[in-house]
Nucleic acid binder design. Structure first.
Lengths: 173, 173
DNA sequence: CACCTTGGTTCAGTGAACGAACCAGGCTGC
DNA sequence: GCAGCCTGGTTCGTTCACTGAACCAAGGTG
């Protein structure tokens, strides 16, 4: 974080990690990337983030190698998670689990299941049915009991995550 | 985050969680709390955080029930992690693992082991020796190969984490 | 009773976030 | 071939939070 007082002086990997993903909005951008969001405009409409901030964050994430910018099917460039970015999935998953545990009075807002056998994924990332650690592309994210359709807006992202989808599967053709 | 544009509108537990722990410094305060830091002055000297910001964050964390403020042995009040706060440990652990994987050229800065049998704790929080999920108070944190003693400063916190310690064990008597 | 330690609060300066406006390139319709 | 729209940004003035230094109050110590 390029504030006068940064975390860099600390010999701690939590501090180093937070220098990259600890800035406001960054982890939400990463989360949306797992949900298949790849285009600037889709991030804007779903996150409701100031355009300048999104541009700045995307630049940082590409520079740090968490995202790659590449030509997409529509002729527009897209942002896709690299392996380095995908390895943040446990962080996002645990954050979601904590939020579900304490801030989702009607139950989890999203359920994670194993695409291969449909088994639910437990707290430490394993499929309750087969016991395997589920890889990111084999993870299906579906609305859970705490999902509130009333909050649904009409952007393509919100529409897409309204039914089960594999992580990383691009939102658009 | 009480900025004009907050995350609250999103039906997403990641966003809800980040409203609490996504502010600058907050997760580092939580991390230090796992390391046994409990007193205002120790947070100040170890984190090098502006005093006003620490006071504000501690107030928020107590209000949200992640920390409790209670009388300590020295007659001073102390801040201790509640169960709700302790359940953030997987988030901190995964963040540390990610930082170690990509920003620790000389290997992990800290090693986590199971107090009962000394087995290393792997990526998903299980002891490699006994296979159990290691509870927070049974986790021992020790300097790893990437730990740089040259960065050591002379505050009590840095001195204490220079050798193996159980998580949550108070820094002071 | 002076002094030190601890745990804060206050306040001015600075930098980042916000949001609205602007702008450039590529495609579309005609 | 050009007017218009969609996409993906940049610019800029305002607002807000972080920073760091100074100040302050309570409690313990010599």
């Amino acid at each position: 974080m390029p504030l006068p007082n940064d975390y860099a002086s600390q010999s701690c990997s939590v501090a180093r990690a937070l220098e990259i993903v600890g800035e406001r909005w960054t982890l939400l951008i990463i989360r949306d990337a797992f949900y298949g969001v790849r285009r600037y405009g889709d991030f804007i409409t779903h996150l409701d983030i100031p355009r300048a901030v999104l541009a700045s964050r995307l630049k940082t994430l590409v520079a740090e190698g968490l995202l790659v910018r590449e030509p997409g099917p529509g002729g527009h460039d897209e942002y896709a998670l690299t392996d380095k970015g995908q390895r943040l999935w446990p962080v996002v998953r645990e954050l979601m689990a904590w939020g579900d545990a304490f801030y989702a009075p009607h139950g989890p807002r999203r359920m994670l299941t194993h695409a291969a056998d449909g088994g639910p994924i437990d707290a430490d990332g394993r499929c309750a049915t087969c016991g395997e650690v589920v890889q990111v592309p084999d993870t299906v994210s579906a609305p859970g009991p705490g999902f509130d359709p009333a909050e649904r807006r009409d952007d393509p992202v919100t529409a897409a995550i309204g039914h089960p989808r594999r992580l990383l599967e691009p939102l658009r053709v």
